[in-house]
């Protein structure tokens, strides 16, 4: 006897494939926002499945802050080569050079918020009408309010109080000239679902997610990696620890956890026992209670 129901991972997969195909048919010029993190890798894997045996019919887009982990860029370039798709890069450094944005000052300066301008510029330059992201509703309370198809006005802004109702699986991607959409195919996945699926499908992810020896400094309760961007306080000391990263952002703001999890099986077990949210080590989210909502309103990922 066959069973005629899907398990939860198959149902999430089927839903995401459906969304990706809707994006492809409803928009002229979609892209996948690819950061080299596990969520955008997952979206890219699902896009492969959605269009198989054809290749992914749209480019990947990367907003390069210039503050990346070197491993992330390496992984990005390898992915592009394997998929045979185009890569569009928006450079925060160029936005700074062009005077579009100004670098933050001080010890905790990051380029996180600067990405918004670069992202919106590169979307406009390339006439992108739908940017597909790996955002998940379980990540953060403002993201819990996101639609699968999320409208952005001509300034790239999100208006969370005035969103289009989204019923059944009927998605309305209509827009006026100059506006665009963000689409979130893995809205309904949790961090645990992502890891269980990556393990099941044996999806290739950057080595940064696995426990490894690295030079780090203790700051705000987390291990910040040593890099050429790091400004040390007199009382801070660089040490070598075995750590892994739970999320990947800029090297300047992404904290690691001490860990021995060096396989997907061990990571899945470790994540299931975690008592802190995955973005807890991201100083970009800690600035205020509505830090994510405020950035998203301006056009953030």
């Amino acid at each position: 006897m066959s069973k005629y129901y899907l398990n939860y991972l198959d149902e999430l997969e089927s839903e995401a494939i459906f969304i990706l195909r809707e994006v492809w048919t409803q928009f002229e010029n979609p892209v996948i926002l690819f950061s080299g993190g596990k969520d955008s890798i997952l979206v890219t894997h699902l896009a492969k499945k959605a269009f198989y045996p054809a290749k992914i019919p749209f480019p990947l887009m990367h907003v390069d802050t210039g503050h990346n982990f070197p491993e992330t860029i390496e992984f990005r370039d390898k992915t592009i080569k394997n998929l045979g798709v185009d890569l569009i890069v928006g450079s925060v450094q160029e936005s700074i050079n062009d005077g579009r944005v100004a670098e933050e000052k001080g010890k905790n300066a990051t380029r996180n918020a600067l990405q918004i301008t670069t992202l919106l510029d590169v979307i406009e330059e390339n006439k992108v009408d739908c940017a597909i992201g790996g955002g998940r509703r379980d990540e953060e309370k403002a993201r819990a309010k996101e639609r699968f198809f999320s409208h952005r006005n001509e300034f790239g802004q999100w208006d969370p109080k005035n969103q289009r109702p989204e019923l059944w699986n009927l998605f309305n991607g209509k827009y006026f000239q100059g506006e665009h959409f963000r689409a979130f195919p893995i809205s309904n996945w949790t961090e645990m679902d992502v890891w269980n699926y990556i393990k099941r499908e044996n999806i290739d992810i950057p080595s940064l997610y696995f426990a490894h020896e690295r030079e780090v400094v203790r700051r705000d309760g987390t291990w910040i990696p040593n890099s050429k961007f790091l400004k040390l306080d007199p009382n801070e000391e660089i040490v070598t620890k075995k750590i892994r990263f739970r999320t990947l952002g800029d090297i300047t703001i992404t904290g690691g956890d001490e860990s021995d999890a060096d396989t997907l099986e061990k990571i899945a077990i470790e994540v299931s026992g975690m008592r802190q949210t995955e973005r807890g080590n991201r100083s970009d989210d800690k600035r205020s209670e509505s830090a994510m909502e405020d950035r998203k309103r301006q056009g953030y990922f």
Binding site: K141, A142, R143, A144, P160, K161, E289
Partner: peptide, 16 residues
């Protein structure tokens, strides 16, 4: 999840 919801103490939109 939204600032207005927390300030006004009401649920306005669907949250998942």
């Amino acid at each position: 999840g939204l600032r207005d919801e927390r300030e006004q103490g009401i649920t306005i939109d669907v949250a998942y």
